[in-house]
Structures are given as C-alpha cells and as structure tokens.
Design a binder for these strands. Sequence first.
DNA 1: GCTCAGCCCTACCTACCGGTAGGTAGGACT
DNA 2: AGTCCTACCTACCGGTAGGTAGGGCTGAGC
Lengths: 218, 218
Amino acid sequence: MSSHAITETVPVGASAERSTRDQILDASVVCFAYAGYSGTSLNDIAAEVGIRRPSLLHHFASKEVLYGEVFERLLGDWFARLVGAIDVPASGWKKVEGVLRAGFNFFADNPNYVILMRREAIDGGVHLGIDLAAVLRPLFDEAADYFRREMDAGTFRQQNAEQLLLTGYGALLSYFSDAPFLEGLLDENPLSSGALDRRSAHIIEFFQAALVPPDEPA
Amino acid sequence: MSSHAITETVPVGASAERSTRDQILDASVVCFAYAGYSGTSLNDIAAEVGIRRPSLLHHFASKEVLYGEVFERLLGDWFARLVGAIDVPASGWKKVEGVLRAGFNFFADNPNYVILMRREAIDGGVHLGIDLAAVLRPLFDEAADYFRREMDAGTFRQQNAEQLLLTGYGALLSYFSDAPFLEGLLDENPLSSGALDRRSAHIIEFFQAALVPPDEPA
DNA sequence: GCTCAGCCCTACCTACCGGTAGGTAGGACT
DNA sequence: AGTCCTACCTACCGGTAGGTAGGGCTGAGC
C-alpha cells in the first residue's frame, strides 16, 4: 500500500476507495494503452495497484481474461454513448454533427481507450476472443445506409458512404491514438482543452464542408 | 544499393540472392509490422531468414539497432517519394492531389511501413533513438504554409491548415494501418487492387470537396 | 599449402515472463 | 470454538527473452 503512483480523483460517494478489482482494471487500461499487450507484464499492473502478481491473478484468471474484460468494459461504455447520440430525433447534418461530437467527447474523455482500440485494430484482434469488426458492423452498416438516404435526398453530396465512414474513423481516432507523436508537430499537448477545442471545431467544419452541398446552408 | 523495396524476383545478373543482411532487414519489416517491437523476438526474424539468432546478432549489434535501421531505411524511402511529389511544378489543388496520390501509392506499395509508423506514433517513439516528429516537422510546416497561401489567395476554402494536415494524415494512414480490422467491415481485402482504387478515388474526391470552393472548378 | 577474415553454428548465460502451489491473516457466520 | 471464505503473500515452475563465448567451416589472397 506504500506506492500510490497513479491515483485518479476517486468518486467520494459511497466508498472511500475503489475495490481492488476495479483498481486492477483501471491500472490495466493505462498499462495496456501505454505499452500494448505484449509490452505489458502482469507485474507492471500489479505494481501499479500495489499488490503482487499472484494476487492479481486471484481476481482475473489470466492475462488474456483481464485484457478481454478491460476491453469489453470500455467498448460497452463507448457503444452506449454512441447509440445514445444516434437515437436522438434529428436528421441530416445535425444528426451527423451530434454523433461526431459525441464520439469526439468520448475519445477526449478516454484517450487510453482510443489507443487500445487502435492497437487492437492494427493487430487484427488477435488478443481478443471477440471479433471487433463483427461487433461494430451493424452500426457501420446502419450509418452507411443513413448517409445513402441523405445523399439520395440531396441533403448530402453524393459520395461513397462506406469510404466516408472510414475517412471519419481515421480522422477522428488518429488524433487521439497518435497524440504522443502529434505533440511534436503541434508544439502543444494535443489533449489540452485548448487543443481539443481547436480539433473539435475543425472536425465539424471540415466534414460539413465535405458533406453539405454549397446551396444548402447546413 | 538498398533502395529496392521487397523484391521477390531476384535479379540473376550480379548476385544470385540478396545479402543476408538485407534478408534480415526485409524479414524484420514484416515481423515488426505484424507483432510490434516487443511482440517480435529475434528468433522469429532469424527463423524467417533461415539462420539462428546469434548469426543475426552478428549483423546487427542488438534488437534496438536492428529496429532503428529498419525504420530509418523505410523513412528515407518515404521521404524521397514525398519530396519528389512536392517538388513538381504545380500549384493549387493539382499539387495537393499529386502529393495525396504519391503518399497513397507509397502506402499501398508498403503497407507494412504504415503499420510500423503507426505503432511508433502510438508508442511516442520510445523504441527509436530519433525523434520522429522532429524529422517530419519541416515538411509539416512547409505544407501548412502552402495551404495558408492558397487559402489567402482564395484557391482553397478557409480552414485551419495544421488541423487539415492532421485530418489528411489520419484518413490516409488509418486505411492501411487498420487494414486487418477494416476487412471485417468491408467484406473484402482492403489491399486488393479494386478496394485500393475505390479508396484512392474517395480520398481525392473527398478532399477536393472539402478544399476547393464551389465556384472554383478545381 | 597456409593464413585469415567473415559468417554461422551450438552451448550457455542472466533476466523475466505467465502461471501455480501452498500457506497465512483475518472477517463472518454457525 | 470451529469452519468457511476472501485476499494476499512467498517460493517456485517451465519456458523464452536478448545477448555472449567460442569453435568450425569456407573462400580469397598469398
């Protein structure tokens, strides 16, 4: 209990401190995001929590199980946020803007999640039992259909809907996943509130310029 | 000398096969891209070449040195291609399109390079002696200046130049770095020639829509 | 022939990996 | 008191990591 390296602001509601299990999950997100699956040892995580590796394995059967649980928890949060933004009664550009903002804000709140997701996408999901693409597929198809409908209605410019989604995916996530690198290009912390505001404004402006026809004022 | 990318068909003129050193470098690109720095063992690379690990270490002093050399070689190739596209006598959208196409084609030819670069950007360059962002910085600033000049001249729509570059960076690279994942979304190999044509066309079309003002026909 | 450098090998080292075995402290419930 | 159970510990397992020592083979130059 001597070395509290990373103590986030603990919710001071019911219990004074989080359960060991939750502390492990929190530390795991940080470690896996920072060094990847194979670059993170269970000792690293245990040390962050302040326990020994066997004690960690008392809470999670194996490294793989722990990783899966970390990922599942974050994926669930993200899904909920996304679906919440999709289900608002809006249409046309306003809806796209809402979803873009929701995604952006979630990523800004959970930059480690973006890094985790990216690593997993690059690795093709080998560390995960689940098929990440298959999980996201329904949302992807739904979004593509939405774009196509708006394009056919003339609300959006005609473009390849799937490609459009991939472009948005890349533009949105790369900013967060590559933040350590981008800091060297921008001369400021990309996750500072000022930089985030600038990024958010650009994303919205850029996609509006690409999507909304010139004659249609948003 | 070393400017050859991965050539399967060995030139039968001077030497019957590539030097062991070059074979090691080639195998390293594949392995490091596939499994990352810490996920790749020197045994993996040596096995790919068909030698033992100590023999590999005869050619490269350490894993770190090997990795650095792999990266430096690819970075040099990419830089040359990029600068070549920048230095053509063109302006306005035509120049941007040329650079976009050059980047796209290089990435399509060297998908493993994109993955390597992505991994390094996520890791913040910890495995590299060099500062990746510092190396790319001059090109980044030059490009931003170019955009600003075109915007002021009215050739491009007014936007944040640096943010624009980041968006392009993300949209371009993510398609290649996350190809294993995207295959599950697209139901086809993202690196097949058909898929590449479709992606290339979209990238060009999309950025043109976002950059070129409605009244200016390219 | 001989030497000698270059290349590759086997054998070995230490450090660390994920995971297990077995034991202990202490709270709760009977 | 006796019995569970949770949570943690130390000690250890087999396996693998990166790296080193040193010997053998080969081919070019003499």
